[in-house]
Design a binder for these strands. Structure first.
Lengths: 227, 227
DNA sequence: CAGATTCATCACAAAATCATCACAAAATAG
DNA sequence: CTATTTTGTGATGATTTTGTGATGAATCTG
């Protein structure tokens, strides 16, 4: 359900495991790295949404990893360190660190801090377009509002995301599988005909403009104005 | 293009410098001061549009500088401090602070918050409303009073701030996380569902107008009059 | 310091949404 | 025209999200 992937970097397997257990209990998915080198490699491959990075590690230390990652990404990073360790640096100013956690830490605090960092960073993401128009439809991603003939209509989250995707890519046909991949996500395991039901719901809410969503027989659906 | 001048006050040159670099990259012009005395002097001379003020400084500390500046100006001020430092004061009510940032912080976060403060303050200049109306509701920010159908209702501080925020941004949906960021502050560590409880309380106090606060299922809440 | 108020969190109830199924309707192939 | 495949749609139970009362901690007040 929660799609947030977190990369845990620590040389001690035991610590990694404890963190992993608590994060997964909260619905995060995790990835592990036991040193700086592996961390950089895994970071590039799996593109995590957040990184928990131990300061003290053999070979490449946490600060170096931090700087390398910062050269190319502003992914949220939480530094992990033993209490007392490099105290000045911890509470001084280190570029690009989003928060610190000192060992030992309570799971509750760790989760709270992770959630706070995610909350903050997601807030700074730019919203792409101000308004998406198509025929009598106007989608306003910023406020998550949808207007049909200048009247607001209520859509459920899935309906909204599906409509958004179709409008953004109007005039293009998508198979049910493509829609599942793009709207539901790649890890959705289920019946492709689920799409049909949501298309039905959308058409119902588009009322007299229901023909905006067209069936391409044997292939899938597309969004298209007029005709 | 951007004419906004920002005064950076911190005793550590390294910190000043990092902040300076990021601000100038964003098109702000900057001025520096390394202690409270110099800060006051430079403030009077160069009339900055915003001040970033470190709490811990030798000679005159940040709070004192804040008070002195507030005697003659309402320029936006963002306080800077290490986490844990003067914890109570940070979370207490300190007059005239527009925002505070705890170290460590990411540059992205800093920029975002500076822009938010500027946006807010310029907003007040233009609007400077004595009364905020929405349907049967009237909020009077100056006296912190709220009237519903011309009858005063009592709100707790949190309820008031939440309602204020929602009314100011009516017709826009906010997720629980956004509400936490904007009403509770970036430093709040806690359950997002706390928002629900306050929404409930507000609805109760809005009585027959409870539908002003609408649930957008799967997303969050919005304030909207009528319908 | 006692009593009241406010606040955050929890647990459970209520509501909305979602995925799936079964069958009807429509389109296509032969 | 008939059989077959594909799509439309209503119903249903499971899942997810939200509503809400209770509770104890923290804070304010007098």
């Amino acid at each position: 359900m929660n799609n947030t992937k977190i990369l845990i970097v620590d040389d001690e397997a035991k610590i990694r495991n404890v963190i992993k257990i608590y994060l997964e209990k909260e619905g995060f998915s995790t990835e592990e790295a036991c040193d700086g080198e592996e961390a950089l490699k895994k970071f590039n491959v799996s593109k995590p949404s957040l990184i928990i990075l131990d300061v003290m590690m053999p070979k490449i230390d946490g600060w170096t990893v931090l700087r390398k990652i910062r050269e190319e990404s502003s992914v949220p990073i939480i530094m992990l360190s033993a209490r007392g360790e490099e105290y000045d640096k911890l509470f001084g100013f280190e570029l690009g660190v989003d928060d610190y956690i000192t060992k030992p830490f309570s799971p509750k605090e760790m989760i709270a801090r992770i959630k706070a960092v995610i909350r903050r960073s997601s807030c700074f993401e730019n919203v792409s377009t101000d308004v998406l128009k198509a025929g009598a439809l106007s989608l306003m991603p910023k406020s998550r509002q949808v207007f049909l003939d200048n009247e607001e209509i209520n859509l459920t989250p899935k309906e909204y995301e599906l409509l958004c995707f179709l409008v953004k890519n109007q005039n293009t046909v998508f198979s049910r599988e493509q829609l599942l991949n793009n709207v539901w996500g790649y890890n959705f395991l289920g019946d492709a005909r689920t799409v049909d039901t949501h298309i039905k719901q959308l058409r119902e809410k588009l009322r007299k403009h229901k023909k905006y969503i067209q069936t391409v027989w044997g292939t899938g659906y597309k969004f298209k104005v007029e005709k």
